[in-house]
Nucleic acid binder design. Structure first.
Lengths: 233, 233
DNA sequence: TTAATATTTTAGTTTTGTCTAAAATTATTT
DNA sequence: AAATAATTTTAGACAAAACTAAAATATTAA
């Protein structure tokens, strides 16, 4: 497999994340995400198209090709394995791992990454609850939904928290909610959109609308192949 | 402390290593070491001089300044800690660690490096037996000498092997010599420059001139401050 | 101590990735 | 549907880090 520059990798990764939500990604979206200018994005899109990593017609937006997706999954694998390493082994706190992993992810030795994976015991999710692609690029896509969209009496696992301010962390700690917590919704109140939540067999307690909006959960994870949507092999 | 580009760091590191032997480093030496052209070296020397990392007058060679030395020791600290991690935790073999560490060393988060150091148990030497600078840039300078220069009946520790071919590794394994082995010389033969060596209390055995020339040992390590040779503080 | 040789520096290009400003295209209104 | 606005692309410039070829300086040898 070929090697890509740090800059190319950052573009590929950003497109991968944006197209999860959008399908196709626009120049301005990407420029905004990468804190760069639209003109720079266009330049890079031409380059990535020439390398067959994305589909792109001028003015029509772009999305990753099959190859592009594979490259993206490799970068995400490295990023999330390093995040796991930093949190689990080096005792970085949950909200510090991302920034350092942004740098480590660009060290692209296949052997390093696979041995790191083994050393860590083949973790399935990173410290934010996001799934880690395996050595073949397979990733468990667990449809992550906001707690506000979860149905009644459906057990789900907290997989991520969008806000990462110390205020929300304080509140989550008090309510004993962390990544991996299993919970279900018992009641919703239309008046203020607050809800009653229960963790395991403990008594239910109340969560505000604002808090619920920042908590994301998964129900049943599914193993999906990489690539462009077609099942390959 | 400021941040330097990967390229700048590679130059600084190379000068540091070359000036151990030479005192002052020349343009051609450095170009050769970095597999680049003399003109490129001159360009970079101007840049590093402007950043006050080295002493340099055109045509007169160069050497690192006090600040330059500190930066170099930081890079070497990162490099050797990663080498230790790769060998000790990820089970890379001794001769594979250098290449991967060449990339990891440029991730310069102070917190990452200090936490890695702690996680590894503050190792004093890397897998090649070279000393690892501590968080303040202090390094144990153990005068490393070739086995051919070691005096009779002077206990010394094997600290590195210059050649790293599989042939020499096979021979070392057979003779039960690895990094860290304590040994002393009992006899030397002028005819073929072979020598009798003893490990601990075991019976002495013979080592050829060619093998001895590739084995380096240290006697008593000393803790030296960083900087330009003056004792700072 | 000149002449020849080797080393080092300068000058001018190249590549990668960025930028600004202007032109082209698409989208939105009236 | 024409006019206006927003988005995207092109054109031209720049900085970093490399290179080649030529000029400048140092070193060595005759």
């Amino acid at each position: 497999m070929l090697n890509y520059s740090t800059s190319e990798e950052n573009y590929i990764k950003a497109i991968f994340h944006l197209q999860r939500q959008d399908g196709t990604v626009t120049t301005n979206e990407l420029a905004n995400e990468l804190k760069t200018k639209p003109a720079s994005v266009t330049d890079m899109m031409k380059k990535l198209k020439a390398k067959k990593l994305l589909h792109y017609q001028p003015y029509q937006g772009f999305r990753l090709s099959n190859d592009g997706n594979k490259v993206a999954l490799g970068i995400i694998r490295r990023h999330r394995l390093w995040e796991y390493f930093l949190a689990e082994k080096l005792k970085f706190s949950w909200d510090e791992v991302h920034e350092v992993a942004e740098h480590l992810e660009h060290v692209s030795s296949k052997k390093l990454v696979d041995k790191l994976d083994e050393f860590l015991g083949f973790p399935r999710v990173d410290p934010h609850g996001d799934p880690i692609p395996d050595a073949n690029g397979k990733i468990e896509i667990s449809k992550k939904i906001c707690l506000t969209e979860l149905s009644f009496n459906t057990p789900a696992v907290v997989s991520s928290v969008s806000d990462q301010s110390s205020e929300i962390l304080e509140l989550l700690e008090h309510k004993k909610i962390t990544i991996g917590t299993k919970l279900e919704i018992k009641k919703k109140f239309d008046f203020d959109n607050s809800m009653e939540v229960r963790i395991g067999r403990q008594p239910a307690f109340t969560i505000s609308k604002q808090l619920a909006e920042n908590i994301f959960v998964t129900s049943s994870p599914t193993l999906l192949p990489n690539g462009e949507g077609k099942r390959n092999k």
